[in-house]
Design a binder for these strands. Structure first.
Lengths: 133, 133
DNA sequence: TGTATTTATGAGTGATTTACTCATAAATTA
DNA sequence: TAATTTATGAGTAAATCACTCATAAATACA
């Protein structure tokens, strides 16, 4: 499984937001510093989370980011699908190969089974779960 | 999950070998033709399978490849680990990030859980299972 | 012995992806 | 108006992927 660093950063940012939301909007630079994530890149990740309605943001002085959904309703699966470039969790050759097209590809349903198992775990793990360890 | 095309080719080659083993050694070119895999690349894949004892081979006229283990004992998991460049199935940032090192990485055990679930499926699926659909 | 056949093996390569940076625009506040 | 903060698209260096190429080594058979 390819876990893009965007997903890692995104999840960490969401955990950070959940833990610091009481102070009001949280700025990219603060999250970047706390989580040791390159600032400009984190800005893009947060922008993506924003676009998909997981967070919302405000520009200008004392602007920043906040969660738009409560931590117990944000699943790793949703973050993965949001930041993971719309790829299948198990990319069984989805781009170039004929795997999914081939009628007698005997591997296909194994990988599908794997994907279902993965999504089951990711969709049942929330940001809140991560905070509670 | 990154399913390298090598793994796909390897699994298909093993299924092909299992289905054609009764005729004696099977040549790379024949598998390549039947399975529509680039010949030279398949040669490398078969060589890798050979190195790890899944197949054996013979050079020269009427040489070729054969299974060294019976299909019911070759798991997708083993093929994945053999051809998948020794990476973790779930590559939770294993290369560059601090994920596995960081003491308070709350994602780590989620990805580990995912990896265990994936391996459970792959290790319980054999080449024989694929042949029997 | 010599020639054809087949695998073994390392080096190279073009395209794509990844993980960023840079530059600048737009919004907001004081 | 100036400072601050996010928005957004373009660019980029390094790594990876999916191969090809070239050549060596083994084997079979005439």
């Amino acid at each position: 499984m390819n876990v893009p660093i965007q997903v890692d950063y995104g999840v960490r940012a969401l955990v950070d937001l959940a833990e610091n939301s009481h102070k009001g909007d949280v700025q990219t630079a603060d999250i970047a510093k706390r989580q040791q994530i390159p600032r400009q890149f984190l800005a893009q990740v947060l922008h993506n989370l924003n676009k998909f309605g997981i967070t919302s943001s405000k520009r200008g002085p004392n602007g920043g980011h906040r969660l738009a959904i409560k931590p117990s309703n944000i699943t790793m699966g949703y973050v993965m699908r949001t930041l993971g470039n719309n790829k299948h969790t198990v990319c069984c050759l989805e781009n170039s190969s004929k795997c999914y097209q081939a009628p007698k590809c005997s591997q296909k349903h194994v990988w599908r089974k794997v994907e279902i198992a993965v999504n089951k775990i990711l969709d049942s793990t929330t940001i809140e779960d991560l905070i509670n360890n």
